[in-house]
Amino acid sequence: MLRVESISAFYGAIQALRNVSIHVSPGEIVTLLGANGAGKTTLLKIISGIHPPAKGRLLFSGQNITGLPAEHILRLGVGQVPEGRQIFAPLTVMDNLILGAYVRLKGAGKKNVLQDMDSIFELFPILKERAKQRAGTLSGGEQQMVAIGRTLMARPKLLLLDEPSMGLAPKIVTDIFKTIQALRDRATTILLVEQNANAALKVADRGYVIETGRIILEGETHDLLNNKEVQRAYLGKEYREVWEGVKGGKI
């Protein structure tokens, strides 16, 4: 469904991504793991057309989308839930959701959009209770639900989730990941960026590990969970020791 081929990207003189290739197949949940500043968000921004790549190619459902404007990519079916939620605080929950369907309001008609809203309320029952409330008055977890729901209202074929668990209490994080699980059962295709590797690897089929702009590992979640480097760097197991190599003294 999505193919990213050898993408490089800069912020001014700083190179944020170096020759990154990933893919997401229909129905898959793929996670992108990495520390702060590794380039995870940049990659999502490139996929959704917010940041231009310096090199490389993006294909979505076989179509070359490299350099297309963000609104065009959204219409093709790539929906991003931004980092830090970025909901419209003064608007009600309902209005936030309706705005998410903006790109298809004309074609789909109000009735369809309202139907979709019901399915969002099914996914997040708490939002139904808060429908008329201003989004800014909601808790962090509820705001994340609004952000996810708003993106789903555009009926994306591919959902990009940027750190959905960031800044949330552990219990809420569990709820959010239950939602991702539920989305998976609805056969939604997801690219999930996370620092919470433990939780991400539980729901994902495959994953990539990105370090300083480079993909250094890829594999099925089973392989990543068994990889000592992943265990040390992202799962809080073991410590990294200096390798007293026979030759070269590698780490």
């Binding site: 050898s6 990154v20 290739s21 893919h23 990539y208 480079r214 250094i216 890829e218 030759k247 590698k250």
Partner: peptide
């Protein structure tokens, strides 16, 4: 699909050996 998979794995392999194998 195979070529994409090979490209991804090749690039991550090269990144790892460049970092880890002094040879």
């Amino acid at each position: 699909e195979m070529e994409q998979l090979q490209l991804e794995r090749l690039q991550s392999t090269l990144n790892r050996i460049f970092r880890n194998v002094s040879f």
